[in-house]
Amino acid sequence: MATNQELQVQKKRELDEKEETTIAARVFLPNADIYETQDALRVILEMPGVEKDNVEVHVEEGVLNVAGRLDLSKYKGLQPLYTEYNIGHYSRSFRLSSKIDQSKIGAEMNDGVLSLTLPKVEEAKLQTIKVK
């Protein structure tokens, strides 16, 4: 994996929902990295500007929902002169392929990056069967 390439701006993708929200605030899809280890699924989401108290994570019927609310009051009274990116809340859902132990979900927020650890339940873990 090439790591030393120059960073480029990633255009923010907006959440496409069937229903409109009553508040005219924008909702974006956070960039995600997902990888699976032997006993857990790790989900890493970039939500710059979201404080750790404003993050909501829940798993319902095999769907992981993550929502991050931006404190828009910080932008109150600021007059934009030059803008390159839009701001808004973050929301994203993933359908999980393996069974997750909901009671053991770990979440950590560091520098606008949310790291989730979703441990698999015992039965979903890969069992190695020895051939006799």
Partner: peptide, 26 residues
Amino acid sequence: SQGPFPPINVFQQGDALLAIIELPGI
């Protein structure tokens, strides 16, 4: 500029300027 990253927003705050730059995970 050598590259358009990171994206930047510039606001006016009284006499001063306020630049807000999104740089998650650094």
